[in-house]
């Protein structure tokens, strides 16, 4: 494999990884603070993508679409939190899984009802389309580079928010001791709504950004949701840092595995098509094998607190 192809794939993996981080961060925040496992997080991703596609198609402005995605996902998150989710904090995980699975069905079918079964398309804005030449003569799509930069910027913002702001202190305190921060006069139910809406906004943003390179359709959220779960298991639940490292690991290993494993098998297997088959079948399992390895070596995840 040439170096240029390799660097391209590393960048693709990085882009995939930062998107996974946006998903995993919201999930892990909600789990850390409220102890809730939220399967409907993928629906918020979908809502973001649909909002972005609709608004940017109507206005012709990508930035407005992005803003709409953030707003729509955060709104949907806040409404769902107030109407359903807050009844689940004291329930066991089974009830949480079922109720949020029910929400997936409602959101997916509702979206299908409003927008139909055909995928929508979200155009990359003029300014961000086309390739850019990176140092070393590598041609790379500007838009994917934009996603990487946006993802890293949001990650930095999130770390700052949690480490430095009043809201961040409340979130960390909420993870440590719920009763105590309620006793200290913090409106805990408002905090929960804010955290949930924040997680939803991150998911919506991921959906909108990815929506421009894939089609926007019902059911787009759940495969990403499951990958975000893999990310969280690897990184450790409740840890933003773990989510970041896990997301980059999953993004890079998955992307590189898909291009390199068929080549690796091709180098020593006589039958070229069999090598491709075995290589790509194994590549599709690679991140789950990594997850299995983490479950064996460190069941609490790389950055999870010991159980």
């Amino acid at each position: 494999m040439t170096t240029i192809l390799f660097i391209e794939q590393v960048l693709n993996g990085l882009q995939f990884g930062v998107m996974l981080f946006l998903m995993a961060a919201g999930l892990t925040l909600v789990f850390g603070v409220m102890g809730l496992i939220n399967l409907a997080h993928g629906s918020l991703y979908m809502i973001g993508a649909f909002a972005a596609a609709t608004v940017s198609a109507a206005t012709g402005n990508f930035v407005l679409g992005l803003v709409a995605a953030l707003a729509a996902a955060a709104m949907a998150g806040a409404v769902v939190e107030i109407a359903v989710i807050r009844r689940l904090y004291r329930r066991d995980h089974l009830d949480q899984v079922l109720a949020t699975f029910a929400l997936i069905l409602i959101f997916s079918e509702g979206t299908r009802w409003v927008f139909g079964s055909f995928p929508l398309y979200l155009d990359i804005p003029e300014m961000l389309s086309g390739p850019v030449t990176l140092p070393g003569g590598i041609e790379y799509p500007v838009y994917r580079l934009f996603i990487i930069v946006m993802g890293l910027a949001v990650a930095a913002l999130l770390f700052w928010l949690i480490a430095r702001t009043r809201l961040g202190i409340q979130i960390r305190a909420g993870e440590a001791d719920r009763e105590m921060i309620a006793a200290l006069g913090i409106d805990i139910s408002k905090l929960y709504t804010v955290v949930f809406a924040l997680g939803a906004a991150l998911a919506g943003m991921a959906g909108a950004l990815v929506g421009a390179i894939q089609s926007v359709e019902v059911g787009m959220g759940e495969p990403v949701l499951i990958l975000a779960f893999v990310t969280i298991i690897i990184g450790g639940i409740g840890s933003i840092k773990g989510a970041f490292v896990g997301a980059l690991l999953v993004g890079l290993i998955d992307t590189l595995g898909r291009t390199m494993l068929p080549l690796v098998f091709g180098s020593f297997m006589a039958d070229a098509s069999a090598a491709t088959t075995v290589g790509s079948a194994l590549a599709s399992m690679l991140i789950y094998i990594l997850m299995a390895g983490v479950l064996i070596a460190r069941p609490q995840g790389l950055f999870g607190a010991a159980a």
Binding site: A102, L105, E109
Partner: peptide, 17 residues
């Protein structure tokens, strides 16, 4: 309705809650 799974979802939600 073609969207019958939404009703199943609503029913499931009610059963759980």
């Amino acid at each position: 309705s073609d969207y019958w799974l939404a009703f199943v979802g609503a029913l499931l939600l009610l059963v759980v809650l």
